[in-house]
Structures are given as structure tokens and as C-alpha cells.
Design a protein around this nucleic acid. Structure first.
Length: 428
DNA sequence: TCTGGGGTCCTAGGACCC
DNA sequence: TCTGGGGTCCTAGGACCC
């Protein structure tokens, strides 16, 4: 039988909080929290903050008192910074294996083909030390024969001080006890709904789950559930993706800092989000033939509720910002109703195709050559001088509705974004 | 007063075709 | 009165992930 390749999952500890700490040594040993967009909820905590009993995903207003009382350092999220740190970590990991699968901003699977089992632990220690020394971020590493088991090992490594952040489950005699000590809800692929269902059938931990009947689990949790069970038993069946595939849908949406009712302000927001989505579309060298627009009031609030969305087909697939904005605004026109307190709007681009196979249409009356030069110029300037250096006037200049970021840290690693003046309205 | 944003995969069911 | 079988494509909705 073919031997499985050892898989390590390298996961940054409290990533966003750790990023904020790199450039601010005064924060070592101090509690830190990082907020979501719009400063709405907590999305990352340092260990010290966790020890104060603060929970992830708590709304800021519910924990304000405790934050003040313990002098917790609070940051708005700074994704430009975190993305840059993430990139550096991934580059460092390439020293250790030719096969790295970047799984999220703070995690990567590292395939350790050819490393003998007795050496895996020290190899992982070397990775951990390197990332701490070069970048300053602490990581935990789980090693196993499948991704699901590696994730489980990682969790165990993180939760138990004595492992110092590394656990190898390959040929590990205690594997059964590790499975029994992992709640089923903490298994990769099991969320809230499935936890409820499994608990109803007396399945409480990863070990219980590994023993279920395959037909039963497929019926209850689709083939994805079956894959999870197989993986818990050491049979890899979740494929790696080494080259990230093109996105099939690109969403851009934000909550407003204050409620918005006016159509012209909603239009500005839609134009702004469409610009972002179009930029991403061009980055992956695609075009799209559908744009959806959606809006909604605040579901938590006891005010008149309205949410709606609509899809607009484009006659010719495109990646031009101005064209996409035109169609998005037509969509808004269809669903907008006055007098509601809107909390959020967004756009989603779908029907995505590679640009290089784009066919010319007989009915196309847009000067595509001219538009191409325009967006190329915009992308080039925004890349060099920071995003939003130039933008379409329909996006608005004042942007009263724009999200809150009251606690943002400076741009330590990327120079331009925070430079305070902006060349606006060069282009319409 | 204040509750994120951006994705993926899978299935069921309807429309349509021969 | 009788009312097939098999295939494809699309969409909506539900689950999950970070």
C-alpha cells in the first residue's frame, strides 16, 4: 500500500493580534483585541485578552467596559498589514517544502514528503523557530496523514501548553485519546448545525464520529461528511490546491457607519464596491457577464425591515469598472425603496470567464480599446500610490457613509496607503 | 447607540430535451 | 383511460470555512 505523505498545518497564533504586536513591543504580555470592519465585533484576541474572559465575535458595545477596565489595546482591522505579514510567512515556509498550500491568511498546509517520521517533530520545531525569528509571529503546527487529522493535531497543540505548539499524530500511540478529547464541533468540517444533529445521535467527539456508518453519514451530511469521517481514519480524500483557482464569484460589501436612506448615497457605495470587485476581477485576468446588487436594513433592530437583491445580465462580458458600475446602478434602481434605514449594501460579480477567450460581439458599441487604456492606467496608479488614489466620481468624494475605523494602526510595511492627500476626480 | 466580510461545495428540484 | 426514462443545465438554499 502506498504510504501517505505527512501533512503539516502551520497556523499563526492569534494572527491579527500578533501582527499588531510585532511593531509595538510595548504590547508584549498585554491584552490586545482586533475589531472587524466597521469596528463592530471582535475578530481576534491575544491570549491575555482571552484570559480576561473576552470572547471572539462579541459585539464591541457588549465588552467596552471590560476593555476599559483592563486597559486592553484595541485595534481596527488593518488587512493591508496582515496580508503583507502573511505573504512573508508563506515565503519563509517555502524554505521547508516545495509543496505549500496557502489555505487562509494565517494558515498553510506544508507537505513533508521524504521527511522520516522520527525527524518530523524537529523539522516542525525548525519551522516554528524560523517564523518567530524572521517575522516575529508565533505559530502552532499539527502533523498527520490527512488534513482533517492535522487540523485536529494543531488544535490539540495549541490548547495544551506542554506540547509547545507542535503535535505529530503519525504513528502516535495516543491518537485515540486525542480523538476522544476533541469535541465533534471542533472537527474541521463540522459546524453548528451538524453538531446539533450528531449530538442527537450520541456522537460527541472526534472518536465517535470516526466510527459512524458510512452510508448513514453520507445521507445526513453529504459526501463532505463522509470525507471527514474517512480522513479521521487516516485516508486522505481532501485534495490539495497548490495553484489557487480563479474566483467564481467576487463579493464586495460593507456595513455603513450610520444608517443610509438616500439613493444617491447608496449609489456612491455601490459604485465604490463595484470598483473594488472590478479590480479583483482584473487582477485574476477575468471578465464577467453578471452583477448582482443587494441591500438590507439592520436585522437586529426593531425598525421596518427590507432586504432584496437583483441580478443584472451584461450583454458582453467585461472587466471595465465604469461599465460594471452602470449595470450595478441599474440593479439598485430596481430594488431601492425610499424611507428605509439601510445598514448594508453590496455587489457580487458572477458569470466569470477568463479574459483571453473573450469573444467580440457584433452588437458591442463600446470603445473597448479606449476603456482598456483607462483601467490599465487606473490600476497602475492605484498599485503604485495606494488604492483609491484615483477613482470614478460616481463613487463619491465625501463618502459620509463609509465604515468606521477608529482604532487603526499605522501602515508599518506598506508606505502609501495612509498618505493623507488623494488625487481625486481625474477620471470620470 | 453599537452585531464583519468573503468565499466554497453540495443537493434538490424545476425546465427542458430526445 | 392510459401518463416513460434518462440526461443536462440552472438556481436557490443550506451547510461549511477563515
Amino acid at each position: 500500500m502506498k504510504k501517505n505523505v505527512p501533512i503539516a498545518i502551520v497556523d499563526c497564533n492569534n494572527f491579527y493580534a500578533s501582527c499588531e504586536r510585532i511593531f509595538n513591543p510595548k504590547l508584549i504580555g498585554k491584552p490586545i483585541v482586533v475589531l472587524s470592519n466597521n469596528d463592530g465585533i471582535i475578530v481576534a484576541l491575544s491570549n491575555e485578552a482571552k484570559q480576561l474572559g473576552i470572547k471572539n465575535f462579541s459585539p464591541l458595545f457588549k465588552v467596552n467596559d471590560i476593555l476599559k477596565k483592563y486597559d486592553v489595546a484595541v485595534f481596527s482591522s488593518n488587512y493591508t498589514l496582515y496580508g503583507d505579514i502573511s505573504h512573508r510567512i508563506m515565503i519563509s515556509l517555502e524554505q521547508f517544502s516545495p509543496e505549500i498550500e496557502v489555505y487562509s491568511i494565517d494558515e498553510a498546509f506544508v507537505y513533508l514528503d521524504g521527511i522520516h517520521n522520527k525527524d518530523l517533530f524537529s523539522y516542525a520545531q525548525e519551522m516554528q523557530k524560523t517564523i518567530k525569528k524572521w517575522i516575529g509571529i508565533p505559530v502552532s503546527i499539527g502533523i498527520a496523514e490527512t488534513k482533517t487529522l492535522a487540523k485536529l493535531a494543531n488544535r490539540r497543540a495549541k490548547k495544551n501548553q506542554e506540547y509547545k505548539g507542535i503535535l505529530n499524530l503519525i504513528n502516535n500511540v495516543e491518537i485515540e485519546s486525542h480523538l476522544k478529547l476533541t469535541n465533534v464541533t471542533d472537527v474541521w468540517g463540522v459546524g453548528r448545525q451538524y453538531t446539533k444533529l450528531l449530538n442527537c445521535h450520541n456522537i460527541y467527539n472526534a472518536y465517535d464520529l470516526s466510527k459512524v456508518n458510512h452510508n448513514w453519514i453520507k445521507k445526513k451530511m453529504t459526501v463532505q461528511g463522509l470525507r471527514t469521517v474517512m480522513e479521521l481514519n487516516g485516508f486522505p480524500c481532501i485534495e490539495g490546491e497548490f495553484i489557487p483557482p480563479d474566483k467564481k464569484g467576487i463579493i464586495s460589501s460593507r456595513s455603513f457607519s450610520n444608517y443610509v436612506s438616500e439613493k444617491n448615497e447608496l449609489s456612491e457605495a455601490i459604485a465604490t464596491y463595484t470598483s473594488r470587485a472590478a479590480e479583483k476581477l482584473r487582477m485574476q485576468k477575468s471578465v464577467a457577464n453578471m452583477i448582482s446588487v443587494f441591500l438590507r436594513t439592520n436585522p437586529y433592530k426593531n425598525t421596518p425591515q427590507y432586504h432584496n437583491g437583483c441580478q443584472v445580465m451584461l450583454p458582453v462580458a467585461t472587466d471595465f469598472t465604469n461599465e460594471l458600475i452602470d449595470y450595478a446602478l441599474k440593479g439598485l434602481e430596481q430594488i431601492y425603496k425610499p424611507n428605509y434605514l439601510y445598514q448594508k449594501v453590496g455587489v457580487m460579480i458572477t458569470g466569470i470567464l477568463p479574459k483571453n477567450i473573450l469573444q467580440n460581439s457584433l452588437f458591442d458599441n463600446i470603445d473597448r480599446e479606449k476603456n482598456q487604456k483607462l483601467v490599465d492606467a487606473i490600476d497602475k496608479i492605484n498599485l503604485e500610490y495606494g488604492s483609491d488614489t484615483i477613482y470614478f466620481a460616481s463613487s463619491g468624494v465625501q463618502k459620509k457613509w463609509q465604515m468606521k475605523r477608529d482604532f487603526k494602526s499605522p501602515q508599518y510595511t506598506t508606505r502609501w496607503e495612509d498618505i493623507p492627500y488623494v488625487i481625486s476626480n481625474l477620471v470620470d
